[in-house]
Design a protein around this nucleic acid. Sequence first.
DNA 1: GTGTTTGTTATCAA
DNA 2: CTTGATAACAAACA
Length: 276
Amino acid sequence: MPELPEVETLKRELAHVLPGKKIAAFESAKFAHLNLVGKKISKVERRAKILIFKLQAPPSKLPAFLLIHLKLTGQLIFKNKNQLIIGGHPADPTKHTRAIFTFSDGSQLFFNDLRKFGWLKVVGGADLAKIFSATGVEPLSPAFTLPVLRKILARHPKRNLKQFLLDQTLVAGLGNIYVDESCFAASVLPMRIVKSLTANEIEKLHRAIISVLKLATKHKGTSARNYVRADGSPGGFVPYLNVYGRGRQKCKVCQTPIVKIKLAGRGTHYCPHCQK
DNA sequence: GTGTTTGTTATCAA
DNA sequence: CTTGATAACAAACA
């Protein structure tokens, strides 16, 4: 599932290759209404789990932004002209390719999305600002201080941690994987009610969120299912997962079997011994 | 056929 | 305003 570390990885990899490229062709049944041909990409950014391509505006015109959300199964795979597919990486296009960008130098970007939840849309600066303001604090930005986390928690005293951390309007970018991993790293159970957290636990949670997201980004994300990097290769974080996807396996710290339950409608994993 | 997988939004209820 | 529950979107897999 593409969450902050996965989208950040794609942002960094695409920021290396896309700026300056001009869209020569755009093929898509689902997003055929988008007018992208002739537009030049000037910048690649990320906010929460959204990728943002800044489209260079002609003189006298306001810039537009192409937003991409991968949702559950989206992939963005970039290929240079005549680039060979490395063994094991998905061949393009696949039957799940929903959009193909062809740039004027012959390179291509494929948007694959098995479950079709992902989307592309073009917005102006005002709409972009609206989306930004409706989205929570970036956990890897300097704005995510301990007092800020305390303040957000205080506004939602009755929620459990799982629901709180999944809410993109509060802290942006965590999904099912990194919520469970952050709770483990903070030694706190995901079903704990926010109000019950001690000052020390909030401090540990703050540090845990930052360190988990940083480490996962360093390893280019978690390829548990569909997610791949911009070159089609998998991210390397799966061996570092402590609880997500490890139900009934032994805790790496204490050997107690990891428990999997349903919480807030989601599969939720935790160690009943390490987390209180 | 049943249940499970999950990001996000909408909707209804308290 | 907060919150909780549920459905919807869609496709694959066990």
